[in-house]
């Protein structure tokens, strides 16, 4: 098919830019370990309270300034048996599932953002380099109280 030579040039440059985008995110994802949250663990969504580790959700120290924070999302809160306070510089592995409908899990000002689908576990890791007030909020519609579904997370000095 005949194509104007400038159009051909434009398509080469344009597709070239797309290839660059794909390479940048591809390398960042697969070589540097930043693939989007895609946990494969499953559980019975009606038995969350009886399934470890969600039978005792909360904060567990698992290493040098490294924590696992297990949370159960349910309409309209994130359940935890511990206070959500962590020291500055801590790396936190969030492990979350839902007891009822689909919820979202997001912490503004960070890259923490994932879907919580019932029957599935989802995980994401973030290092809190600076102290301050953070907010864990649900960003997927889950019912009348959806806009109230948020809990504070404190990073202390």
């Amino acid at each position: 098919m005949h194509m104007h030579k400038l159009e051909r040039l434009w398509l080469i440059i344009g597709s070239g830019a797309l290839v660059v985008f794909l390479l940048v995110i591809g390398v960042n994802a697969f070589a540097m370990g930043h693939t989007p949250p895609s946990d494969r663990d499953i559980l019975d969504p009606t038995q969350v309270d009886l399934t470890a580790p969600f039978d005792d959700p909360g904060l567990k120290k698992i290493g040098d300034n490294e924590y696992e924070l297990v949370l159960v999302a349910q309409a309209f809160t994130f359940q935890s048996n511990d206070e959500l306070k962590i020291p500055e510089g801590a790396t936190v592995h969030f492990k979350v599932t839902s007891k009822d409908v689909v919820h979202g899990f997001q912490i503004p000002k960070t890259n923490v953002n994932m879907m919580i689908t019932p029957g599935h576990v989802n995980t994401i890791t973030h290092t809190f380099d600076e102290a301050g007030q953070f907010l864990i909020l649900c960003n997927e519609y889950c019912g009348v109280g959806h806009q109230a579904m948020g809990v504070p997370l404190e990073v202390i000095k």
Binding site: H4, L6, E7, L9, W10, I13, G14, A17
Partner: peptide, 15 residues
Amino acid sequence: GPNLKGTMIAVMLLG
């Protein structure tokens, strides 16, 4: 083909 220099600049700005 026709003169399409303006078009080329326009799409490059878009890009």
